[in-house]
Design a protein around this nucleic acid. Structure first.
Lengths: 340, 340
DNA sequence: TTTTTTGGCTTAAATGATTAAGCAATTTAT
DNA sequence: ATAAATTGCTTAATCATTTAAGCCAAAAAA
């Protein structure tokens, strides 16, 4: 258990001061006017002794940890873990590492995670915000910590964000169902006030209205995050059993879709003949449902890369005006939406 | 942008030394013989000023960062992200946070990640090891950094590990297929020398042998991590098209299964009538394949919790003997394995 | 009464780096 | 020849904390 080689060890080995070694290690030999011979000697010793700087000590001095805190609802959800992978890669390219936490859509857990990460001096946050966390976000901004929101956003506060146009995406999906001859279109959503979900609901309703279809309250099914499976089941059955009260369904997320599909499959409903379906997000499950699902595809790559880009920009310039990257979504059509 | 409250600020606010405040904050007031009145005053000021300790400074002093480095093949793979979620929760209960990295099954990337994490002074590693990384693991042990392997393991080195009995799991799966009347059983595996994969292959072959079935070399399909989709497609087609040369398939991982199922579906093969299937791992996709897949279920919860347990134990006692937790796997039977 | 112990605090070194400032010796300018 | 500038290094403060050691006064023991 040979202990770590310190700057001091390299310095002592050469009989010089630690300052010299530090300058060379950080490529400041010109600025520090170090003789070429000495630079060479130090470089050699550094390699020979395999000196690795202690980043904790560097951080204490610099106030920067080169660490990004990533907070999502649940890292085990492929939607978030796929984004996490992109963020990981992009961040490391810039010399950052990522620490992550799952909020489970809870504002309290979100606050806990923010506190833990703040105490660890993360340089910035990338957050898929839970409901009622606006104040947490603005509090971070107030103390000067860069924050970028992904997937979720808050129109009421001014913050860097990356997301799709949820209203338009839902609108387009519903309009497509209508064009495919559907007139009684239901939606399965989360019962959250989060704007991205509200926008999806608004887009859904707006598309109905614009096409002369009167929205019926019972068409909008809502489930809570805490009890998805049960609530999806009871809600969806109201519309599909014992008689089909609707002829199409829009699912607001992949998780909602997967839970819903289990019921639909179990009830033996014919998709797309009796029920057309479009979902948001993606899932391996969508490919293998007997009628492969049509879905609103978000480029997770664009979201992840956009988030890292914005966060780095803000780290470099804390006073720049906030930007919003609207990632282009696209409708991927397969069997479930019932194209003719 | 009101800057952070330091220990010094609290001390100055009360006109006492930083040492006093530090003792109280760390609940060492008895050991440091601080008067009850002073303790109360300090406690109050700490709350009032909302003092939050700088963990970077603490780490520099203590040499501990309370950070665990998690290295997996790919965090976007639900198998790993689900384990990551468990590890995250368990680790935070113990006051640790997790930084993660994806090796993409590359030994070089694995080494890079280890170096990055080491420089950041992580207290321990949890690693799903890539091929040819034995030396990386032993090197960590040599410098006294706790390491726990998950999913993958190396019989040649002595290291804490958590995994299932891959041989037995494969053996049982194949035997079940045989009991269900299948006699020509193929396997789709990764072309890696990693022991967990080798064991799955051995278990497969052993079950064939024990049941008097002569293994045919062409039954063992192998794909590389770098080019899964294509290699799975070409390999599997050799056995399934234009004629079915086998009547059952064992898939060594969820990823291999998903890719294979796409081909099987595309070829219009009848599962389980013409081809029985069992896969390792789980996937939402398995539920929605027209013949829901039977699979070897590993408790990701047990793996994650076991890994954190072992890693904490080793952090506390670096000299304890290495333990291996064999997580019990179970065969979940559904339609694809063709039960009568 | 004197010495010893205890109580309650402060001082200062240490953690491992960075970097401004300082200091000889040498070179260049006046 | 003297002053000024440059070269090449070292010293020491700093980052935010922890903690052993020290110090003084009051209390206990001799």
């Amino acid at each position: 258990m040979n202990k770590k080689v310190l700057l001091k060890d390299v310095a002592q080995h050469l009989g010089v001061s630690t300052a010299l070694v530090s300058y060379v290690v950080n490529n400041k030999e010109v600025k520090a006017r170090i003789s070429p011979g000495m630079v060479k000697k130090i470089r050699k010793a550094v390699v020979q002794l395999n000196y690795q700087p202690n980043l904790i000590a560097k951080s204490l001095k610099s106030g920067r940890t080169n660490t990004i805190g990533l907070i999502v609802a649940d890292i085990s959800n492929p939607f978030f873990s796929s984004i996490a992978r992109i963020i990981e890669d992009e961040a490391r390219k810039q010399g950052y590492v990522v620490i992550f936490g799952s909020s489970d859509e809870s504002a309290e857990i979100s606050q806990d995670l923010i506190n833990v990460f703040l105490n660890r001096q993360v340089d910035a946050f990338i957050i898929a915000a839970a409901e009622n966390t606006e104040k947490q976000i603005t509090a971070l901004q107030k103390i000067g910590i860069p924050v970028v929101l992904i997937d979720r956003y808050f129109p009421t506060i001014d913050v860097d964000s990356v997301h799709i146009d949820n209203f338009q995406a839902a609108y387009n999906a519903v309009e497509l169902l209508i064009n495919n001859g559907r007139g009684k279109i239901a939606m399965m959503a989360y019962d959250t006030g989060l704007p991205h979900m509200q926008e999806r609901k608004s887009g859904y309703k707006a598309a109905l209205k614009a096409n002369g279809i009167r929205f019926s309250n019972e068409w909008l099914c809502e489930a809570s995050h805490q009890n998805i499976a049960n609530e999806v089941a009871t809600e969806i059955k109201k519309l599909l059993y014992p008689v089909l009260k609707v002829d199409a369904f829009l699912f607001a997320t992949n998780t909602l879709a997967v839970e819903s599909l289990k019921i639909i499959y179990h009830l033996g409903i014919k998709v797309p003949e009796d029920l057309a379906i479009i979902s948001f997000d993606e899932s391996d499950a969508f490919d293998f449902f007997y009628a492969p699902l049509s879905y609103v595809s978000q480029s997770l790559e664009d979201i992840g890369k956009g988030a890292v880009k914005l966060v780095i920009e803000r780290i470099q310039d804390g006073d720049k005006i906030c930007s919003t990257i609207i990632v282009k979504e696209k409708l991927v059509l397969r069997k479930s939406s019932g194209e003719k």
